[in-house]
Lab assay of single mutants.
Amino acid sequence: MIHRILNHSVDKKGHVHYLIKWRDLPYDQASWESEDVEIQDYDLFKQSYWNHR
């Protein structure tokens, strides 16, 4: 379960990846995930991330 999205990056092919802080895990366990991976409520977290940038 996502706690929040910390950052994003765009690779050379134009694909967006998000650095995800996972609920109940420390920050050093955050991981980069592609924008099209199937994660519960991912779209809501991405929308919230962009609304607050």
Rank of each mutant, 00 (worst) to 15 (best):
W22C: 03
E38N: 07
S31Q: 05
S48K: 14
H52D: 11
N7F: 06
R53H: 11
Q29M: 08
W50A: 02
H17C: 14
M1A: 06
S34Y: 04
V37K: 15
Q47S: 13
L25E: 08
S48P: 05
D24G: 12
S48V: 14
H15I: 14
D24C: 06
R23P: 02
Q47R: 12
D36G: 09
H52A: 13
A30Y: 02
E38S: 11
K12G: 13
Q29T: 04
L44K: 15
H52W: 14
K46S: 02
L19P: 04
H17D: 07
K13S: 12
E38I: 12
Q40I: 10
N7I: 06
I39N: 00
Y27A: 14
E35I: 03
L19K: 00
V10I: 09
V16P: 05
H15G: 13
K12T: 13
W50V: 03
V37R: 15
I39W: 02
Y42A: 05
R4Y: 12
N51Y: 09
P26V: 03
S48D: 14
N51E: 15
Y18S: 05
H8G: 02
L19W: 01
K21E: 10
W32Q: 04
V10S: 07
S31L: 02
Y27G: 10
K46A: 01
W22G: 01
N51C: 07
H52C: 12
L44V: 15
K46Y: 02
N51R: 15
E35A: 11
Y18H: 04
H15S: 13
N7E: 09
D43H: 11
E33C: 15
L44G: 08
S31P: 03
R53S: 11
V16F: 08
K12A: 14
L6F: 04
Q40M: 11
V37S: 15
V37P: 04
Q29I: 00
I5E: 00
F45V: 05
H15M: 11
D28K: 12
V37N: 15
G14T: 00
F45Y: 13
R4E: 14
S9R: 15
N7M: 06
D43F: 08
H8V: 01
G14A: 01
D28C: 13
E33I: 15
A30K: 04
D11Q: 00
Q47D: 09
D11S: 09
L19F: 06
G14C: 03
A30W: 07
K46Q: 07
A30Q: 01
Q40R: 11
F45R: 03
D36H: 12
H8E: 05
L6T: 04
D11M: 00
Y42G: 04
D36K: 13
H52Y: 10
Y27N: 14
L19V: 02
W22T: 01
E35D: 09
Y42H: 12
D36I: 01
S48M: 14
L6M: 06
H8A: 01
E38A: 09
W50G: 02
W32T: 00
R23D: 05
L6N: 03
M1N: 15
Q29C: 11
I20M: 05
G14L: 03
E35Q: 08
I20S: 03
M1E: 14
V37C: 15
G14H: 01
R4M: 11
H52M: 11
W22P: 00
R4I: 09
L44P: 01
L19Q: 00
I5G: 00
R4N: 09
L44T: 13
I20N: 02
L19N: 09
D28R: 11
Y49H: 04
A30N: 08
Y27H: 14
Q40Y: 07
W50I: 02
S9Y: 11
I39Q: 03
V37Q: 14
F45L: 08
S34K: 15
P26S: 11
L6Q: 05
R4K: 15
Y18G: 03
V37W: 00
R23V: 12
D43V: 07
R4W: 09
M1L: 09
G14Q: 04
Y18V: 04
R53F: 11
I2T: 05
Y49V: 01
P26T: 08
I39A: 02
W22I: 03
V16R: 09
K21H: 14
V37D: 09
Y49L: 04
V10Q: 08
I5L: 07
E38M: 12
N51Q: 14
N51I: 06
R23Q: 12
K13I: 06
W22K: 01
E35W: 05
H17N: 13
S48Y: 15
H8R: 05
Y18N: 03
M1P: 11
D11F: 05
D24M: 06
H15P: 01
R23N: 07
G14S: 03
Q40G: 06
K13A: 10
D43E: 15
K13L: 08
Q47G: 07
E38T: 11
N51L: 10
H3R: 08
K21C: 07
V10R: 09
G14N: 07
Q29F: 05
K12F: 06
E33R: 10
H15D: 06
D41N: 11
I20F: 00
S34E: 14
I5P: 06
H17Y: 13
H8D: 00
G14K: 08
F45P: 01
L44W: 09
Y18E: 06
H3S: 13
M1T: 12
R23G: 07
F45D: 06
L19A: 01
S9F: 12
K13N: 12
Y27V: 15
E33K: 13
L25K: 15
H8N: 04
S31K: 03
L25Q: 13
V10E: 07
V37H: 12
F45M: 09
F45N: 05
R23W: 11
Y27K: 14
Q40S: 09
K13F: 13
